[in-house]
Amino acid sequence: MQISVHDVFQARDRIKNFVIRTPLTLSGPLSEETGAKVFLKLENHQRTGSFKPRGAVNKMESLSGEERDRGVIAASAGNHGLAVAYTARLTGTTALVVVPQNTPTTKVTGIRRLGAELVFHGNNYDESEAHAYRLSEEKGLTFIHAYEDPYTIAGHGTIGLEIMLDLPETDMIVVPAGGGGLILGIAILAKAVRPDIQIIGVQSHASPPWYYSFRAGRMMEVEYRESLAEGLHGGIGKAIFPLVLRYVDDFVLVEEEEIADAMCWMAREHHQMVEGSGAVGVAALRTGRIPNIAGKKVVCVVSGGNVDAERLARLLSAEK
């Protein structure tokens, strides 16, 4: 698989009328805590509440009329499904979305509201994806992959483009890492602009495939556990694995209590509703998981805000 800077610029032109150029905001409290100058890239402000429409719109715009007419299908932990449903509505395409049984209510409600057909299958993303591929074959639907697709990755790379246009002197970008499409897209663009920039991925101990695979230099089997960052659950892309090893500098892990604390901290300090998957970068910075950042300009990607209000309220209550 090959993705170039040119692909990211083409994606920017395809999606510019359908997505928001999200804010890059200086976090005074986080800068004070870390000794770095930390900026938050607030993708929770994006349409559908996460970064995912960037990739989904770019992919949909690449399809032929015949592929759109057949309808599309996606597997998702929630946010990709929202993005595909949103994009399908924009283009007049029918969409079927397969999600795990434990998908948060806010994401399920949003997918249905956008008009997609919803199928629950499996306990994690990988099981949902396998079922979605079967349905794709049976029904003749075009599969829209959440991360292992060059158009999806280039779409996500537009986040890196916006960061480098807004803050070209960025020293480090901290990115939540699920399947790998988000961090790879950002890394390809950012490294082209500034080769010495550091790209750091963050996962949870409950879903750590990139962390261990990166260190081993090969794809590793890991155990998955229930997590507040359910959007990061699942396997990693075999086709993009060599590219991630080439462009990403490191991965770190955070604990569940640290994710919960980061979600509450974002609500308290920045008045932002952030889901667990979107808060892992904040958690990593606040707990010192990423060393030697004092004096640097660091951008932390807040990848999504689709958290059930009841869940966030419980976390905030438990914090008192």
Rank of each mutant, 00 (worst) to 15 (best):
I20D: 10
G65S: 15
V57T: 07
A36Q: 13
E66N: 11
P53R: 11
A83L: 05
F51H: 08
G28Q: 13
L63V: 02
K52C: 01
P29C: 04
T25Q: 14
E43Y: 03
A75F: 04
F39R: 00
N17V: 03
S62L: 13
T34Q: 04
N44F: 00
T34I: 08
R89H: 02
T25E: 14
L30M: 14
H80P: 14
G71N: 11
T93G: 05
A83T: 02
F39H: 07
A36H: 01
L30R: 08
N44G: 02
T34F: 05
V57R: 10
G49I: 02
A75R: 02
F51L: 06
R70M: 10
A83R: 01
L82Q: 15
E67I: 10
S62I: 06
G81V: 11
T91W: 15
E33H: 09
A88F: 04
R54Y: 04
A85K: 04
M60S: 12
R47P: 00
K37W: 07
Y86D: 02
F39V: 03
A74G: 08
P53Y: 01
V84Y: 10
V19D: 01
R47D: 00
T87Y: 07
R70T: 10
N58R: 11
E32H: 00
A36S: 02
F18I: 11
E67D: 10
T87F: 14
A85V: 15
V38G: 01
N79E: 04
D69W: 00
D69S: 15
A77G: 14
K41M: 03
A88P: 12
G35F: 12
R89M: 11
L40P: 06
R21Y: 15
T22E: 02
L24P: 07
L90K: 15
T34P: 12
L42S: 00
G78T: 08
S31E: 11
T91N: 15
A77P: 08
L90W: 04
H45D: 00
E61R: 04
L40D: 08
T48L: 09
